[in-house]
Amino acid sequence: MIFQTMEFLEIIANITTAILLFLKPLVTPIGEWMVDWITTTTQFFKDNLGASLSFYIVVFIVLVVSAIVVNIIWPGDRPGSIFSKGIGKLEEFEDKIGISDDEDIVDEIKRCKDCGNPVGDSEICPLCGARQI
């Protein structure tokens, strides 16, 4: 059991070695650049904001309070004030079109009063020849 575990770990070691040997030359230079700016940034913090924790406590409180305010006003799951113009326009369009749930589109087609054949805008029925006044 121990030998199987060791063999398994060796296989894992070989696989991860292969992955890292391939990716290391790509990732290491990026890491060097990251270390540079992180060192500069932490040095800036140490030089200018390293006296007491008050600044950090204030930032924490401001972040929490502002998050509460912002996410209550704009929760994102319903139209807030920012969307009201868009919804108004949509309702306007619906009024113009005059779409009603009760209306049946079949009733809108013009039919011949004699034979009932659909005539559209024509004045004479193409089936029975009756004049549509």
């Binding site: 932490t42 913090f45 140490k46 904001l49 390293g50 924790l53 950090y56 406590i57 930032v59 924490f60 409180i61 401001v62 972040l63 929490v64 502002s66 998050a67 509460i68 912002v70 996410n71 704009w74 929760p75 994102g76 799951d77």
Partner: peptide, 23 residues
Amino acid sequence: LFWLTAFGLLASGFAFFKYSSPK
């Protein structure tokens, strides 16, 4: 201990803003 606390507070504050924002 000072810098752990300082950056920990910042990380926690930003975490709240991030996770309370809509998906």
